[in-house]
Design a protein around this nucleic acid. Structure first.
Lengths: 209, 209
DNA sequence: CCAGTTACCTAACAGTTGTTAGTTATGGTG
DNA sequence: CACCATAACTAACAACTGTTAGGTAACTGG
């Protein structure tokens, strides 16, 4: 049950599904089935209302999916920012990156239907919806760029790697886990350790260490 | 113009679009617009015929998209196998991986609408179509696993990395480039150097080298 | 020259889609 | 009690979907 619905129910209101309940259900369906095969009637049925009723809360299907996309980025953004800023001052590059990667993967794989829906359907929605989501995306990307730049200025990262490129590579690799990750086979936590290690140290056997 | 169409035209035949021409056009549209928003009428129009005529060559829409998916994997598989097998015997891990990565990225970003369409729409098509494409996929994945295992047995790769996991991570990262790669900003060739270097050596600044 | 094959076209079908207009039931407020 | 906002419902629309049946023109082998 959504927070809003819970609050209203406790006030004795005949608990309506409401805008929030619709979004929760929509995010889940989009994550599971993709954009194209989720109709308004499917969303409505899963929410326990009729299709026409969706237009009380939203002006169009685009408006629903746009809301899901925005929340999806906000969740992972908050999660990542919080994880990094919670680190003690002077934390090394290794731990900082691991924290950021872990936060991203947890939001994507454990926590949020919104974030996974975003990653899954962003490439499937109409251009106009994608454009509407861009500012929110850019803010999250800037957070990553800031982190990576800081580590590079501290001399922890190679000076010849391009930050934008590295960020695209990193987030791309992380998001791709959504296609195959199986919680029964391993935790997001373990995954983030592996990913951080590969990106930081590579996979080549070395003489030193 | 497709090879078939060219051959037939040179024989004096009133050049039909044909099965091959339809697939070429379908692959391009799927790559550009995704699965859901490409209707049979759009494919037909782009091919210069009418929607109903598609059923002369194919039994259903699923059959069209399944054919595109299969060809997409075959192209990148052939490209990768050929690139690796062309290397002189005793080639090091670094060069081997770079060749494989380069072949994959070139098929994805430069060469084939089929391969890029596969990566783009695989997650959007009906379950049955995905299942039909699985054997072809597995063969390509096995090719990668064989390469990585060989390198690991030669002692070139760390012995504690899981091959399957590494392959998923690598191909996932490579495929993700499709979302942002802009040929005007850099070549697939240059990209493959960067990716190989990061995966092999990591991004951490080191005392040695 | 005729028969057959190839590759298309036309027209229509049943189902689904996003969307709209008008209606109704509920519960809090003056 | 009357009033009003909230959150639904019903029923229909035009457009579009994959698909099918039947027809037609062009080239090919006998």
């Amino acid at each position: 049950m959504s927070e809003l619905a819970a609050k209203q129910a406790s006030q004795g209101v005949r608990s309506p599904v409401g805008r929030e309940g619709v979004l929760d259900v929509a995010a889940k369906l989009f994550r599971e089935q993709g954009y194209g095969s989720v109709s308004l009637r499917k969303i409505a049925e899963a929410a326990g209302i009729k299709a026409g009723s969706l237009y009380y809360h939203f002006g169009s299907k685009d408006e629903i999916v746009a809301a899901v996309l925005d929340v999806g980025i906000q969740v992972v953004h908050d999660s990542m920012r919080q994880a990094v800023s919670a680190l003690p001052e002077g934390t090394g590059a290794e731990a900082s990156l691991h924290a950021a990667i872990g936060a991203h993967l947890r939001a994507l794989l454990d926590v949020s239907d919104y974030t996974s829906a975003n990653v899954r359907i962003f490439g499937q929605v109409p251009q106009s919806v994608r454009d509407a989501n861009l500012p929110t995306r850019r803010a999250y990307e800037a957070e990553w760029d800031a982190l990576l730049s800081r580590l590079q200025q501290e001399g922890a990262l190679k000076s010849d790697v391009d930050i934008r490129h590295l960020r695209l590579m990193l987030i791309g690799a992380l998001n791709a886990t959504l296609d195959w990750f199986d919680p029964a086979r391993g935790s997001a936590e373990a995954l983030s350790r592996t990913y951080a290690d590969v990106f930081l140290n590579g996979i080549l056997e070395r003489q030193d260490t």
